[in-house]
């Protein structure tokens, strides 16, 4: 464990990693708590960004540029995913005028 007296003045890799973990958890919390499909999608974007931040921190730590390329590909994929997700949201909204996932109950259990 790092010394508490220097935790604010000595910024190291662990700081970036823990920030990534916090961001990831906030994203998970958003998926758990919210019911608007758009907000859930944004929370998922937060999770992906947490992953990217972690990858880039480790890339710096290991001195490996492969992580940068990986993060770049993740960004492209995230953009593709968002495009499809928003298209689905628009299609749903055309039919029922709301995007509340708790009220989507045509498919019953």
């Amino acid at each position: 464990m790092p010394n508490l007296s220097t935790v604010f003045s000595d910024v190291g890799y662990a700081h970036f990693l823990v920030l990534g973990a916090v961001l990831f958890a906030i994203g998970v919390g958003g998926v758990l708590l919210r019911r608007n499909a758009l907000i859930i999608m944004m929370s998922i974007e937060l999770m992906l960004n947490a992953g990217n931040l972690t990858i880039l921190t480790f890339a710096r730590m290991h001195g490996d540029l492969g992580g940068h390329s990986f993060a770049m590909i993740v960004m492209a994929v995230a953009a593709a995913e968002v495009a499809v997700g928003l298209a689905i949201v628009v299609a749903i909204f055309r039919g029922r005028r709301h995007v509340d996932v708790d009220r989507m109950n045509l498919l019953k259990h």
Binding site: L17, G27, M47, L48, G51, T54, I55, T57
Partner: peptide, 13 residues
């Protein structure tokens, strides 16, 4: 996917 990416990031680390 979020879990997959974060897991991969940790394995990478």
């Amino acid at each position: 996917t979020g879990f997959l990416l974060y897991g991969m990031a940790l394995v990478y680390g």
